[in-house]
Design a binder for these strands. Structure first.
Lengths: 158, 158
DNA sequence: TGTTGAAATGTTATAATATATCATTTTCTG
DNA sequence: CAGAAAATGATATATTATAACATTTCAACA
């Protein structure tokens, strides 16, 4: 069985550093400014592989002594979402960090309801099936969201 | 091209009556009470093929002179959702009536961003692809939501 | 290098969505 | 009919999100 969710005890600093490096590059390529606030929010999101809500981020920022209001957080989230650096999980009203921001294939999000972690996977077969179904009924796709809730392998076996 | 969204000018009373008959049956089979309030909310949802929010329903009930509070609407929605009579569109915080409540295959929702209508379709290929991907990574699926936004054929061609 | 205009953030207020809790009413069952 | 269970009413509040305007930052360029 292939891995999808990171192993317990993995080197998470590496995840964060990779994500930051990718984000730098994506922003540079897009001529977009990766400001302190945006970097801060991005880093907070990457503190775990779980999806976090805007108000959890707000609380985290406040806990660090920053006087931040909701719009600030939502703006950072919008910026990061627009560049594909984070994704919103509609069914959770929460956000998590994308580990393959360059990839624009139709993805799916696996959400573990037990540990809260989210993993993203590209699924060509699913993508094809969705586009085929859309084609059949003359539907022009603008955006697709596939959210799969259940138990990750770690949680199911421990 | 097959139809998915109902034609303009279709006999909508027929949609409503069919849906009501199906709902009666589903409730009876589940030994669940299709009370006046639940029927009212269900009927309101079926006033169109669009997804409607809880507060739009609340406003509609109020407009008819009923003194209804949010919990009443949310309770009716929960009841109807649990029985599969309506579905929640996570990305819209809105609900629409299911026209095939008996079917428990993994479905997908096409959401027209122009006319607001929602159509549900069963997609075996997509379902297989999702389950296959889950199996590969040892993920146990509890629930799946596939929301596809774009333009329906009517809106794209008129 | 100082000016300026656009972008980003700060600030205040409020809108929109959702649920917890307890009281009352209705319905079912014995 | 009594009592229990289910449904709804009512009140309050939690959670999520955005509108609108003020201020600050920063990069481009005269």
């Amino acid at each position: 069985m292939s891995d999808l969710f990171p192993k317990k005890g993995h080197n998470h600093d590496r995840c964060v550093n990779t994500a930051l490096a990718q984000a730098e590059k994506v922003c540079a390529d897009a001529n977009a400014r990766f400001t302190d606030m945006r970097r801060k929010v991005f880093t907070l999101i990457w503190q775990s592989h779980k999806a976090v809500t805007a108000y959890e981020l707000l609380d985290a920022l406040t806990a660090e002594g920053m006087r931040v209001q909701p719009p600030t957080v939502y703006r950072a989230l919008e910026f990061l979402s627009d560049l594909g650096l984070v994704h919103r999980i509609e069914s959770l009203n929460a956000y998590f960090g994308c580990d393959q921001p360059d990839c624009d294939h139709l993805g799916q999000y696996f959400i573990c309801t037990q540990c809260g972690r989210v993993a993203e996977a590209v699924n060509e077969d699913m993508s094809k099936a969705v586009h085929k179904a859309a084609g059949k009924v003359g539907f022009t796709i603008q955006a697709t969201s596939v959210e799969i809730k259940g138990q990750c392998h770690d949680c199911a076996t421990h």
